[in-house]
């Protein structure tokens, strides 16, 4: 029983520090995603870092608050949105050149007038898609791992999630 109470207890230091840290973690994740084409990092790493900010939020504020901030429906939608961005950019290369360019040959997407800039922008778009999917999937795995216990404790309080 004392252990149950210790989980529920709120700590003002941890909450304040997390509140301060989470936006910077997310900003760093976006930086990693965008700079993944030029340096270390990329969509997968940025997505994991972005998901770890939600994991931190869930650990500190509990499942009810985290479920309100990041509902499961939005999670599922984001998961497929990332895949659609990836597949859509790849297919767009085939569509705009009527089948002469390969799948994910970004240079042929007519975003700008320069081939190299097209390639850089297409790469960024694909990285954003990967990041969105990885972020949603890792957050969802963690949510599902911790869900059952809280659900049994709250007895239907988490139903709206």
């Amino acid at each position: 029983m004392s252990e149950e109470k210790r989980i529920r207890e709120r700590d003002v230091i941890i909450e304040t520090i997390s509140r301060l840290m989470i936006p910077f973690i997310q900003l760093f994740a976006l930086y990693v995603i965008i700079h993944g084409t030029k340096g270390p990092g990329g969509g997968f790493q940025g997505g994991v870092i972005f998901a770890s900010s939600f994991v931190l939020y869930l650990v500190v504020f509990g499942l009810a608050a985290a479920g309100k901030r990041f509902p499961e429906g939005a999670d599922t939608a984001l998961m497929s949105t990332g895949v659609y961005i990836f597949a859509g950019v790849g297919l767009l290369c085939i569509l705009v050149t009527l089948g002469t360019a390969e799948y994910l040959n970004y240079g042929f997407i007519p975003l700008t007038h320069h081939f190299e800039e097209n390639r850089a922008l297409g790469m960024d778009l694909v990285e954003i898609g990967i990041g969105i999917t990885v972020m949603a999937v890792i957050t969802e795995i963690f949510f599902n791992l911790v869900w059952k216990k809280e659900e049994e404790k709250g007895k239907g309080k988490e139903e709206q999630r």
């Binding site: 270390p40 990092g41 994991v48 870092i49 994991v55 650990v59 963690f142 911790v146």
Partner: peptide, 23 residues
Amino acid sequence: SVDVGFTEAAVGAGATTAFLIAA
């Protein structure tokens, strides 16, 4: 090998630990 180290730090030390503690 900064890229691999980055992935290891983000996934191995961050996400996997959280998953294992949740499990």
